[in-house]
Simulated scan of single mutants.
Amino acid sequence: MIKAAESVGIRAEWVTCQNAGQLMKCDALFIHGTSSINHHTYRMARWAERERLAVMGDPQSIIRCTNKVYLAEILERAKIDTPATIVVPRGNAD
């Protein structure tokens, strides 16, 4: 990703939870990796959004895409082919 950014004149660098303070000097955040509401990437996305950075992998998208019921319903509504999906209420696996 860094090489691709550099090839079009964008300076990019890795920002991890260990050096998250680096976000203060960035214009945008592109999340490439695990994203769930229990992961540091979600917290970084929320912080970056509050600081008005452009965020690819924004908090709203993380919430929506980690909610598998929501995702199944919206894909079905959009008539997008997916593997067979059954939503089973908790406690009703039989």
Rank of each mutant, 00 (worst) to 15 (best):
S35R: 13
A48M: 05
W47T: 07
C26W: 01
N19H: 08
K25P: 00
Q18E: 13
S35A: 12
T34F: 11
M44E: 02
H39K: 07
Q22V: 09
L71F: 01
E51N: 15
R11Q: 09
N92C: 15
A28W: 03
A48V: 02
A78T: 05
M24I: 04
Q60G: 09
V8H: 00
L71D: 00
L71N: 00
L71Q: 00
C65T: 13
R90L: 09
G21M: 05
D27M: 09
G9V: 03
W14S: 07
G9S: 03
A72N: 00
A45M: 01
F30H: 15
G33N: 01
G91I: 07
R11Y: 06
P89V: 02
M1D: 09
P83I: 12
G9H: 06
G91T: 02
A84M: 12
K68M: 11
M24D: 15
H32F: 14
A28Y: 04
I63E: 14
V88I: 15
I62L: 00
P83W: 04
R77E: 15
I2T: 03
R46W: 00
Y70K: 00
H39R: 06
G33R: 03
A5I: 00
A72Y: 05
A4W: 06
C26Y: 01
H32A: 15
S7T: 09
